[in-house]
Computed example of a mutant assay.
Amino acid sequence: MTVDFQLDRPLSEARIVVAMSGGVDSSVVAALAARTGAEVIGVTLQLYDYGAAVQRTGSCCAGQDIYDARTVADRLGIAHYVFDYESRFKGSVIDRFADEYMKGRTPIPCISCNQGVKFTDLLSLAKDLGADCLATGHYVRRVLGPNGAELHRAADPARDQSYFLFATTQEQLDYLRFPLGDMPKPAVREIARELGLLVADKPDSQDICFVPNGDYASVVKKIRPEAAAEGEIVDLEGRVLGRHQGLIHFTVGQRRGLEIGGQPEPLYVVRLEPEARRVVVGPKAALAVRTVKLDGLNWLGEDQREGLTAKVRSMAKPAPVRFDPGSASGAGGEAVHFLAPEYGVAPGQAAVIYDGDRVLGGGWIEETVPAEPISA
């Protein structure tokens, strides 16, 4: 199989840098790049403690994964370099993750990682190496439109990662390449098997790379011990229903773990009040959101206004919306209005806006506006 890397000069004269995490996806990207006849350089960023992660499976960018990336590069006959970005990753991703939880928000560290370490630092490294492009194993499509490169959903909806890449700038998109965007995952693994790559059947990364076994609370507690401070669980009227062992155990929309009995209907986390260390709970109806106000908007589109959808979680079904740039609160912010109430929306999440399959942009949710007035 051949892939068009959309370069402006013959591939035989080109240099392609591939971001190699040690998984099957980026390994196959390196193989596809090598098939073109271009000079290919694999680059791996060590992002967190090498020793602690050596035996971990289903992670990336540490220990065994670095070894796997190097082994694949040797098999393909391409150069491979490892760069230590552990301190940068800790400051821009891990510490931010902990701080967001401390503020009662719902962080998405994979977006922060792509926004910073991967698509800023790694892209800069690729340019320093004289590359014509940086290729990654993300499942998204780069489509050449009438106004330049556009970011689109992957052909395989089950693998689509466009939600995590909303912060990609136009300048970055001009330089990036995503060879797997038109491919289903089984086809990627088959290429790896045909080439005899040791990672052909390696499990996919699970959850967040630096969070072992999905235990977010233990990671936050280790970085910010004060995050385990106890507090009250109250209803919408402020009546105390119970106590909790730290806000880090809760996110908006959560039902399990409240341990409150004797209620006439199921209760959900409606909001978190970090200054008072309170968890506010209520019925599902209290989770309905009509509008979200955004910060840090990144816009890749033109002036689209009609037929837009938005996602507030990576696997959520796109919801019809109206987008008002610069209208939120009348103070120069941006607002996304859902045409029907949306549930489980929380500050700290991202709202990503689409026109069909095309990613127009998105921003971080700073505030939510209930669909209907509810008691304070």
Rank of each mutant, 00 (worst) to 15 (best):
R322A: 13
T44S: 15
P318H: 06
E275V: 11
R243M: 08
T251S: 13
E237F: 10
R271E: 14
Q170Y: 05
V17D: 02
D95T: 11
R105G: 00
V82T: 15
A217E: 15
I41A: 01
E39M: 11
Q349R: 11
I353M: 03
M1Y: 10
G148N: 03
A154R: 02
N213R: 14
K185H: 14
R243T: 15
Q349D: 08
D182N: 14
V252K: 01
W299L: 09
V72I: 13
I233Q: 02
I111F: 01
F5R: 08
C133D: 00
G246R: 04
F250I: 03
K293I: 14
L151P: 06
T309N: 02
G42R: 05
A310I: 12
V82R: 02
R313K: 13
G130H: 07
L7K: 06
Q245Y: 06
G242N: 12
T168D: 03
A331G: 00
D95I: 07
A98N: 09
V219N: 02
K311N: 01
Y85F: 15
D68Q: 04
L236D: 07
T368Y: 06
A149L: 04
H244R: 04
S27G: 05
L173D: 03
A131I: 06
D49H: 11
V234N: 00
Q170P: 01
G307L: 08
P179T: 08
F178D: 02
I260P: 03
